[in-house]
Design a protein around this nucleic acid. Structure first.
Length: 434
DNA sequence: TCTGGGGTCCTAGGACCC
DNA sequence: TCTGGGGTCCTAGGACCC
């Protein structure tokens, strides 16, 4: 904990939904739900209009639809989110060189390296207000909520207090007054399982947590978490803001609308995922030694199997071969709802190919997968029609796509339906870039 | 037909080495 | 021939975060 309130946490409000409302004027002021469109999807972000109906993150699409049937359900345009996030991160870096992104919509900023005249409460408050205004400006109207305090922990807690479009500054010295009445679940790292353990031990608030001996907490939660919580309950947190974080693993997984039982199909899907992982590794200059598969059975039991190679790889065919072998150890007769492949134990270099074998030319991984739909028309996707101009997919199904013609820069236009294979209709961003 | 996808970190047991 | 401890690597599972 620092003597000054010099750690800032920013959180973009209902980020994915806000980007959609910015780009699609007809959605402004209406409930918008990103995610939850597939048969087994969950909500990634709900706009505040949708939250009023009790829709929240991680809720199943089915339940979200039941609670708010009139919402627009969109499948997400990650290129747009990444682009907007990039602009925000740039603004943060103009404030201070020490910026630690936590996700597309969240980051810590170290104000101690921001070159402010001082770090008095009034000064950092002013800096936070200017920052929020700049974010609004560069994103075309998105709002952010800011917390400023003497540590990462307190800054993050503070940014939860005045959402959306707000700011909370915790004056140094008042941290424990703020924390003590709060529930333990406000502590990052205390999820449902830990909260339940603490509840059974009679610990509900941070004030109660503060009264527990460190040894008792370690006995209850284990060494790392017990010690960590004991510190946080006293507002002790010296974690620095770190601009660079090393990637530890790269993975790809998918949940399928109906359970898989065909082993050949499973192998084909793993192979495709392995190739995607390999491609991403090569793109980022990564290679790794440990290949892990993840299998979620029909009853949600989740299994993993891993194998460590003698030297690192970034080759999709190699990853795929290991993945298929690992799958061979597992009994999947009951059906599989999720399959995934990942590589960890990353090195930032690739072993030289000592024997001159060209990788990726093996013939043994040719597995025929069912043809994907000729075109993907996910709800929310940007499209252009040769005569009608620019718009976005409102919905699709039964061979028909429904499009609303509007962009952020045009007034809402008509809604029209087309056959899915209408050659006049084009996706603006190909599926592979999403 | 409850329960995504991309990650991080921790724990615990066994193998193996010194 | 017996006893013991520490460190590291690997594997499987679980909690958690956005």
């Amino acid at each position: 904990m620092r003597a000054t309130a010099s750690v800032l946490h920013v959180d973009l409000d209902a980020f994915f939904a806000a980007v959609e409302q910015r780009d699609k004027p007809s959605l402004r002021g209406k409930p918008v739900i990103v995610g939850g469109t597939g048969g087994r999807g969950v909500v990634a972000t709900a706009s505040y209009e949708a939250r009023r109906y009790g829709v929240g993150s991680a809720m199943s699409g089915r339940e979200a639809r039941a609670r708010c049937p009139h919402a627009a359900f969109l499948s997400g345009r990650f290129h747009a989110y990444r682009e907007t996030s990039g602009r925000v991160m740039q603004v943060l870096r103009e404030l201070s060189p020490l910026v630690e992104p936590l996700s597309l919509d969240e980051a810590f900023v170290d104000l101690a390296t921001a070159g402010l005249p001082d770090l008095e409460v009034a000064t950092v408050t002013e800096a936070g207000a200017r920052l929020r205004a700049r974010i609004h400006e560069v994103t075309g109207g998105l709002t952010a909520t800011v917390g400023i305090a003497s540590s990462k922990f307190l800054a993050k807690v503070a940014s939860e207090l005045d959402k959306p479009d707000g700011m909370t500054v915790v004056p140094p010295g008042t941290e424990l007054d703020l924390l003590r009445p709060m529930k333990v679940s406000v502590i990052p790292g205390v999820g449902p399982a830990t909260a339940e353990r603490l509840r059974r031990a009679g610990i509900h608030t941070i004030a109660e947590l503060e009264r527990v001996e460190e040894d008792e907490l370690v006995g209850l939660l284990g060494k790392a978490q017990g010690h960590g919580l004991w510190q946080l309950a006293r507002a002790r947190d010296d974690r620095p803001v770190l601009a660079e974080r090393e990637t530890k693993s790269i993975s790809s997984e998918g949940t399928y609308d109906s359970d898989l039982t065909d082993r050949r199909l499973m192998e084909g899907l793993l192979t495709r995922q392995a190739r995607e992982v390999g491609a991403r590794m090569r793109k980022n200059g990564h290679s790794g030694r440990t290949v892990t598969i993840k299998v979620r059975l029909h009853d949600f039991t989740t299994l993993s199997r891993s194998s460590t190679l003698s030297s690192p790889t970034d080759d999709g065919a190699t990853i795929a071969r290991v993945a298929r072998t690992l799958l061979g150890d597992l009994d999947t007769t009951g059906g599989v709802r999720l399959l995934g492949v990942g590589v960890s134990g990353l090195a930032d270099w690739v072993q030289e190919d000592l024997f001159g074998d060209a990788p990726g030319e093996e013939e043994d991984d040719e597995v025929v997968l069912p043809e994907p739909p000729r075109r993907a028309w996910p709800p929310g996707a940007d499209v252009v029609h040769d005569e009608m101009g620019a718009g976005w997919v409102w919905g699709s199904g039964s061979g028909v796509v429904t499009v609303r013609f509007e962009t952020a820069h045009t007034p809402p236009g008509p809604v029209r339906s087309f056959r899915m294979d209408d050659p006049a209709l084009h996706r603006v961003v190909p599926p592979s870039e999403d």
